[in-house]
Design a protein around this nucleic acid. Sequence first.
DNA 1: CCATTAAGAGTGT
DNA 2: ACACTCTTAATGG
Length: 234
Amino acid sequence: MADCITCKNKNCLINKNSTDPRLADFLKNKHTIKCKKSQQFIMEGTPAHGLFFAYEGKVKVVKTGVNDREQIVRFAKDGEIIGHRGGFGSSKYYSISAQALEDSTLCYFSKEDLKNILLNIPKLTFDFMLFYADELSESETRVRKLAQMSVRERVIDTLLFMDRKFGSTDQLLNIRLSRKDYADYSGTTEEQVIRILSTLKKEGLLNAKGRKLGILDFETLQNEISKHTYSPNS
DNA sequence: CCATTAAGAGTGT
DNA sequence: ACACTCTTAATGG
C-alpha cells in the first residue's frame, strides 16, 4: 500500500505532517489491516494498544449501554481517526467498539510510537489538539440534539448528516446502513425509524431504491429541523 | 445462473 | 415490544 506521504487521504493528520523528517521512522512502523464488512476491530473494554485510521472504507463507532442497547457515537471514513484515545492517554482500555460497515482498510499505529511523536513534533500535536477540540464541539452539539429534538427530527437530522458526511449520487446516499443503525445513531428504536422513514417516503421527501435511501427534498427537511440548527455547528 | 435460505424491512396489534 | 408477512441479499450448487 501507498506510504503516508503519497496517501490519497489529504485530510489525514498523519499525511498532513508526513514530510517532517522526524516522522520517517514512525511511518515505518505503520501497520495495515484489512477488515471485512461487519468485522469488529475494536472491542469496548479491551486493552488499547494504539490508534486506527480509516484508509479506505466506512466504520461505525459504538458504545454499548444497558440491555445491550447500542449507541452509535460517530462514523469514520477515509483519513479519519478511530479510537481517539488509543491508549496513549489516561485510560488503558478502549471505551468504544468499532465495526467496519463495508470492506475497509485501516492504518494502525502503536501507542508507544504515537506518544513519541506527540511529545516531539509540536505541529502534529497541535493538529491533533485542534481535531480533538472540533470533535468535542460536535459531540456537545449532538448531546443537545439527542436531548431536545423529537424522534422524527432526530431521524431527519441523521439523514441530512449522512448526506453531508458521505454524500449522495443519483439521489441516493453513498452509505448503506440498516434501519437498526439509523436507530442506534438517532437514539431510537428500529421500529420508530422504519415508520418515520416510510412516512417521509409518503410525503415525497425521501426516496428508496432497494435498501438505499435518498433525500428528495433537502429544503423541507432542513426547514423542519431548522430551529435546532441555528447555531454554527450543524 | 437459479433456487434455497437467511437477514432485514415493514405493518398491525 | 412482539408477532407476523413481505422483500432483499447471500450462499452454494
